[in-house]
Nucleic acid binder design. Structure first.
Length: 756
DNA sequence: TATCCGGGGTTTTTT
DNA sequence: ACCCCGGATA
C-alpha cells in the first residue's frame, strides 16, 4: 500500500501530514518531529499524484534539503523527489533568477558576491566619495543596505523616505543613501548580486512582472516552509505571493526558536500567520522525541521566562535522565580542559562515540581555546563556522579565476587575482586601469587587452604583463564550452600557476594550500559525478560555481568513517541533535551577549539558550569561567543570568574547585584565597605608547601612588609616573617608566566588587 | 613592485 | 591576540 508510511506517525503528526489543501500552520516544539512532518507531507503529496516539480519546499540549510530529498525517495520508492524545488530561499531564488536574469537586465551568468566582495565594493565607494571610513565602516554600511533590501527599499525609495533619512541623520550616516545608490550601480555593472539581492529581485519580479508571477504561481502548487519563525519581510512577501491564488501553504516552525532577528527575521511572521490566512488550520506538535524529561523540563523552565508566545506544552516520555550539570571553572583554559577531560571520560565510562558529542558556544571566537585543548588531549574534532573551506585564501583565489572566466565583468574577482600569483602587476598599475575604467564606464577586463591603446600610462614592460594576464584568461575562456566543470577546474589550477606556487613553497603552509586546492579539485569531480548520476549530460563549471556560492560549511559532506566531536555556534546547531551537548561560556556579556542587554534582545538570547539546551538528547553539561581571555587581556566575568532561569530542581551544580573565590576591589585588584597578597591589575585596553596630551593630575584617588613601584604580570616592574582620569568613565591611565624598551601607558577600569 | 614593520582598531550570531 | 592598513625600505 503506498500510504503505508503514514503508520510511522503519531496522531498529531498524522493530522498535520494529511491536512487537505489550504493554509496550515504547524507549531512544532523542539524535537517533536518537525522535519518528519515536512518529509512525510511531501511524500504524501507525491503519493497523491502531485507532480514533484509543482512542490516548493524552503528549508533552512541546503543540507537539510538534501537529507529530506533522500528520505522522501526512500518513502515513495522512486526518484521523483529529484524534481522537487527544495532548498534554501537563497538557492531557490538564485535558481529562478538564472533563468529570468534577462528580465532584470542581468546576464544569466551573474556572479553572487560574498561578504568579502561586497565589503570591498563599499570600501572603494567610501574612499572615492572621500567619506570618513570610521563613520562609514563597511560593516555598518552593509548592515544598513541589507536591512533596506530585506525590507524592499530600493535605492530610490531609500533616499526619499523621511523616516530613514531621520534615522540616518541621528546616526550621522546621512550619505548612506548615496552609497546605496552607487553600490547597487556597481553590482549591476559587475553583473553581480549580493545575497540579499537574490531575494529582493525575485520579489521585484513577482510584484512587477505579470508573466513571471503567473508562471511561478502556476508552477508552485504546494509550498512548504521550514523554520518559518526565522523568515524576514522579503521572504514573507515571496511566500505570500507565490502561494496565491490557491494558498496551499504549509509553514512549520517554533516561535520559541526564533534566533535570527539580526538578519531581519521577524517573529511576527509566524505569530501573524493565522490572521494572514484566515482559513488556516493550526497544528501543534508537543511531544518531544529527542530529549530526556529532565532536559525538556529544564528547557521549558527557561523559555517560560519569555513573554508573548504561542502557548504550547512540550513534554517528553523518555526516561527522566541525568540532571543538567552546571560547572564553574576559573578560566577559559580550564573550562576547555575540563570539557576535554570530561569528553574522554564520557567516552570511556559510558561508551559514547565522538560523533555523539557537541560543544556549543555563543561566539566563534570561543572555539580557539577549545580547539587547542582538543588537540592537546587528542580528541578528534570537526569545527563548523569560522573560516570555512570556501573562505580560505587559496580556494577563493581559484574560484575567482573561475568567476572571471565566466563573468568578465566581475571586477572583484579580477582585482583579487590579477596579481595572484605574483606577476608584477602592482597596485599603481591596477589603480590606473581601474580609474580609467570607472571614468569611462568601461569594463576593467576589456581594457587589459591593450591598455596602452586607451592612453593609460604604463611602462611597456608592465603593459605587456597586463596583456599576458588578459590572454591567459581569454585562452581559458575559449575552453568553457568544450570542457566540463572538472576539466575547467584542472585547467585553471594548472594555468593560473596557483598549484605550482603552492608546490614551490616548501613549508607546512605551502603543502596545506596544495592539499586544499587538491580538495577543491576533488569536490568539483564529485559534483560532476553526482550531476551525471542525476541525469545531467554535460556539467558546466557555471553550475558548480553557482552552487558553491551559496554553500556553507554545514553543507560539506562529512566522511562517515571519521568519528569526530562537533564544535559549532548555537546558531549553526539549530535543527541538529546530539546525545551529549556541552554549552560553554555561560557568562554575562558573553551569553547573553554584551550587545544584547536591551530588553527586546534579551528574549532572543534566551531563545538561543533554549535552542542550545534542546539540542541534547541524553546529557547536557553547562560551563562558565570566572575569567576569560578576550582581545588580548583577561576579563572577569559573572555567571550568566540565564543560569538562574533554569529551574534548579533540574540542575546539579558542581564547582570544579569550590574554594576558589575571586574578589576584586574597585580598582581591579583581585585576590584569590590561594594567592592572597599578590596584586594583579586588570587592564582595559592594550598597552600603547605614551602619546597623551592630557595633563597629569595629582588630585585623584588612585591605587597607584606616584613614584610607587608596581609589578605587572607581563611587563615586569615599573614606576608610576603619572595618573590621568579620562572623563567620567572611572578610567585611570598610568605611565610606567621603561618597561622593556618603551614607555607604556596602561589603562585601568574601576570594577564594581564581584564575588564568585 | 614587494615586503616588512608598527599603529590602530576590534568582536555576535549567517545566507 | 588578531587583522588591516599605510608608510618606509629593499
Amino acid at each position: 500500500m503506498i500510504f503505508d508510511f503514514l503508520n510511522d506517525l503519531n496522531p498529531a503528526q498524522y493530522e498535520a501530514v494529511t491536512h487537505p489543501d489550504g493554509a496550515q500552520l504547524v507549531i512544532a516544539g523542539a524535537g517533536s518531529g518537525k522535519t518528519r512532518v515536512l518529509t512525510y507531507k511531501i511524500a504524501y503529496l507525491l503519493a497523491n499524484g502531485v507532480s514533484a516539480s509543482n512542490i516548493l519546499a524552503l528549508t533552512f540549510t541546503n543540507k537539510a534539503a538534501r537529507e529530506m530529498k533522500s528520505r522522501i525517495e526512500s518513502l515513495v520508492g522512486n526518484d521523483t523527489a529529484r524534481y522537487l524545488w527544495m532548498g534554501t530561499f537563497h538557492s531557490i531564488c538564485a535558481r529562478i533568477l538564472r533563468t529570468e536574469a534577462n528580465k532584470l537586465d542581468f546576464g544569466r551568468d551573474f556572479t553572487i558576491y560574498d561578504t568579502t566582495d561586497t565589503k570591498s565594493v563599499v570600501k572603494a565607494i567610501v574612499k572615492e566619495k572621500q567619506l570618513d571610513d570610521k563613520q562609514y565602516k563597511s560593516s555598518t554600511v552593509l548592515n544598513r543596505i541589507s536591512w533596506a533590501k530585506n525590507n524592499m527599499y530600493d535605492p530610490q525609495s531609500y533616499c526619499s523616505n523621511k523616516k530613514i533619512w531621520d534615522y540616518d541623520r541621528s546616526c550621522g550616516i546621512l550619505a548612506l543613501g548615496e552609497i546605496y545608490v552607487e553600490y547597487q550601480k556597481r553590482l549591476r555593472q559587475a553583473n553581480a548580486m549580493d545575497f540579499d539581492d537574490l531575494l529582493f529581485y525575485v520579489n521585484i519580479l513577482l510584484n512587477t512582472n505579470e508573466e513571471f508571477r503567473n508562471r511561478y504561481q502556476g508552477l508552485f502548487q504546494y509550498i512548504l516552509v521550514d523554520e518559518y519563525q526565522d523568515t524576514n519581510f522579503v521572504q514573507y512577501q515571496i511566500v505570500k505571493s507565490l502561494a496565491l491564488p490557491q494558498n496551499n501553504i504549509c509553514v512549520v516552525g517554533d516561535d520559541a526558536q526564533s534566533i535570527y532577528s539580526f538578519r531581519g527575521a521577524d517573529i511576527q511572521n509566524i505569530l501573524n500567520f493565522q490572521s494572514d490566512y484566515s482559513d488556516s488550520q493550526l497544528y501543534k506538535l508537543e511531544r518531544n522525541y529527542r530529549s530526556t524529561q529532565n532536559i525538556v523540563d529544564a528547557a521549558n523552565s527557561v523559555i517560560k521566562k519569555n513573554i508573548g508566545q504561542i502557548p504550547k506544552d512540550v513534554y517528553s516520555e523518555k526516561e527522566q535522565g541525568d540532571k543538567i550539570k552546571v560547572i564553574s571553572l576559573s578560566t577559559d583554559r580550564e573550562e576547555a580542559s575540563f570539557v576535554a577531560t570530561d569528553i574522554r571520560s564520557q567516552k570511556k565510562d559510558y561508551d559514547f562515540n565522538y560523533e555523539d558529542i557537541a560543544i556549543l558556544y555563543r561566539t566563534n571566537a570561543q572555539s580557539r581555546v577549545l580547539e587547542d585543548e582538543m588537540r592537546k588531549q587528542a580528541i578528534p574534532y570537526r569545527i563548523y563556522g569560522g573560516l570555512s573551506f570556501y573562505q580560505r585564501k587559496e580556494i577563493k583565489d581559484a574560484l575567482a579565476y573561475i568567476r572571471l572566466i565566466i563573468n568578465p565583468q566581475d571586477e572583484e574577482a579580477l582585482l583579487r587575482i590579477i596579481n595572484v600569483p605574483k606577476r608584477g602587476i602592482g597596485d599603481s598599475t591596477i589603480d590606473k586601469i581601474q580609474q580609467y575604467a570607472h571614468e569611462n564606464l568601461q569594463n576593467m577586463y576589456d581594457l587589459l587587452a591593450a591598455p596602452l591603446d586607451h592612453g593609460i600610462s604604463l611602462s611597456a614592460a608592465t603593459a605587456k604583463r597586463v596583456t599576458s594576464f588578459y590572454n591567459l584568461i581569454e585562452n581559458m575562456r575559449e575552453q568553457i564550452e568544450k570542457l566540463d566543470a572538472y576539466g575547467m577546474m584542472e585547467l585553471v589550477l594548472k594555468n593560473s600557476g596557483l598549484l605550482a606556487e603552492a608546490l614551490m613553497e616548501k613549508n607546512a603552509e605551502g603543502t596545506d594550500r596544495y592539499q586544499n586546492l587538491d580538495e577543491l579539485r576533488n569536490s568539483v569531480r564529485e559534483f560532476t559525478e553526482t550531476q551525471i548520476q542525476d541525469g545531467a549530460e554535460f556539467v558546466t563549471i557555471q553550475s558548480f560555481l553557482s552552487e558553491v556560492a551559496l554553500l556553507t560549511d554545514l553543507d560539506q559532506k562529512e566522511d562517515p568513517t571519521e568519528k569526530k566531536i562537533t564544535l559549532m555556534t548555537i546558531h549553526s546547531a539549530k535543527g541538529l541533535e546530539f546525545p551529549i551537548v556541552y554549552i560553554v561560556g555561560l557568562e554575562d556579556n558573553l551569553f547573553p551577549s554584551a550587545m544584547a542587554d536591551l530588553e527586546n534582545n534579551i528574549e532572543e538570547e534566551r531563545r538561543l539558550f533554549y535552542v542550545a539546551i534542546t539540542r541534547a538528547m541524553n546529557k547536557c553539561i553547562i560551563t562558565y569561567a570566572k575569567s576569560r581571555f578576550k582581545n588580548g587581556q583577561v576579563n572577569f566575568a559573572i555567571p550568566s543570568r540565564f543560569l538562574n532561569d533554569i529551574d534548579q530542581k533540574y540542575v546539579e551544580k558542581t564547582t570544579a574547585n569550590s574554594k576558589n573565590t575571586i574578589e576584586t576591589n574597585q580598582w581591579g585588584r583581585f585576590e584569590r584565597n590561594n594567592d592572597v597578597g599578590k596584586t594583579v591589575f586588570r587592564t582595559q585596553t592594550n598597552l600603547k605608547k605614551l602619546s597623551t596630551t592630557q595633563t597629569p593630575r595629582t588630585d585623584i584617588e588612585s591605587p597607584f601612588p606616584i613614584n610607587s613601584r608596581v609589578q605587572h604580570s607581563v611587563f615586569g616592574a615599573g614606576t608610576v609616573l603619572a595618573a590621568y582620569r579620562e572623563n567620567e568613565n572611572d578610567k585611570i591611565e598610568i605611565q610606567f617608566d621603561q618597561v622593556g624598551k618603551k614607555t607604556l601607558l596602561l589603562r585601568f577600569v574601576k570594577l564594581t566588587q564581584i564575588t564568585i
